[in-house]
Nucleic acid binder design. Structure first.
Lengths: 236, 236
DNA sequence: CAACCAAGGTGTACGTCGTACACCTTTGCG
DNA sequence: CGCAAAGGTGTACGACGTACACCTTGGTTG
């Protein structure tokens, strides 16, 4: 008599099942209907049980983002950089359109998750593989902004949050080394900006410059199309 | 003896004072510290008193956005369209940088306020005055995305919310007429898109097309700069 | 095989939020 | 003077996230 109490023994939860259930619930009922309580109810469990698998609701949302990021197709190796990047970004767009809440959740994240960094790193790698300089790639990433996601918005307020003033410098150096091997392309373009010799980790990035770079690129593009008498029937 | 009870008679609140206090509080303490309770406390009033001046917290945030939008410089009449628009957008950027919470609040708004519509309408007017077609202007607005605000993000999920299925068609027509006189440029470009003969109000806007338009404009721009061996020292 | 222990699930409770609703107070006007 | 509207109050409710102490399992090991 190993199972007398319940009609069917419930198999234990794990982080992955929690995240998938959260994604499914958000898809079905909308992100505003996703609360720790409603999710717990969905899983036939008491709200506090979830906290054995995710630290808090913020981490739950982070995890959900990574689930969606995992749905983006991997890079297609063959084509030239431009169409390869184009394809990848349109794939990201399709993934985000499948989960209408996802773009808003990505927006609201305050610091990037590993899955997000992987994705950005690989996009940067595609630019670099195409021969673009680290500097130009840096600007390109800013100009794309949230368009790398298939929607439109600023990437992150400041790269790694409000400067880890807590940890000791040794642990910080170790962390930096770890990042350098895992996200080499990110590290490269973060360090590539010439001006503003800031302290250790990047941050030497002139937001105003990035903004004007993208703005002028767009305005010049509009002007060029205008002068050519472009109409939406044509591809350009 | 018209004022015996209080040491100093409090002058009555009004919507404007509420909004300004809310902006000031968000500036000082951060947007996450702005609650109906904290704002009421700030104004030496009980929380429910605020509801005599704003319908709910959403409308409070809407009003705060309009306060910030009111800080954007009016168009400068002289210059060519490109630099006039450039100047205006950079002015918007400065306004938003003064209130770091504002971009996140604008993002979170679900439907545009009158002040926002005024601003967008006038930017569109500047494109049109420069001679660009309504069609090209439409795409340009999408491509700029939230960059018209001085930051980066999608403008609105769908123009006027989830299609007013409630009101009777007569009131809807009246509303449309009202909009046409107040926001003529907006109406023009909304109606300009040729394909997708959708019902009454706009919505005949192919998001996928808009996304690819902007994406290709940017990618082509990157490629052009790359071929020219551009480096960030130069303006282009 | 008994003892144990960590991993997983529970129950209760707290503080915060937005806001509904009924009430009182002040003020300006006929 | 009297009265209605405009403005301010007090209480209360139902969400929310989550701290904390507790119980229940099932696998490992002496």
């Amino acid at each position: 008599m190993t199972q007398q109490t319940e009609p069917a023994r419930r198999k234990p939860l794990n982080r992955d099942r929690v995240l998938r259930a959260a994604v499914a619930l958000a898809d079905r009922a909308g992100i505003e209907a996703l609360s720790m309580r409603s999710l717990a109810h969905e899983l036939d469990v008491v709200p506090m049980a979830l906290y054995k698998h995710v630290a808090n609701k913020e981490q739950l949302l982070d995890g959900m983002v990574d689930v969606i990021v995992g749905e983006i197709d991997p890079p297609a190796g063959d084509a030239d950089w431009k169409s390869a990047i184009r394809r990848r970004i349109l794939s990201a767009r399709r993934a985000l359109l499948r989960h209408p809440w996802a773009s808003r959740v990505i927006e609201s994240r305050t610091s990037p998750t590993p899955g997000v960094l992987d994705y950005l790193n690989s996009i940067i790698g595609m630019f670099r593989a195409g021969g673009l300089s680290a500097d130009l790639t840096h600007h390109a990433m800013h100009a794309l902004g949230s368009r790398v996601w298939g929607f439109t918005q600023e990437l992150f307020p400041a790269s790694p949050g409000p400067a880890p003033a807590d940890a000791d410098p040794q642990a910080l150096a170790a962390l930096l080394g770890e990042m350098a091997t895992r996200y080499p392309h990110i590290i490269e373009i973060v360090l590539a900006r010439p001006h503003d010799g800031e302290s250790v980790v990047g941050q030497g990035c002139d937001d105003q410059f990035e903004f004007e770079f993208a703005l002028d690129l767009l305005l010049d593009g509009f002007e060029r199309l205008h002068r050519q008498g472009w109409t939406s029937a044509e591809r350009f």
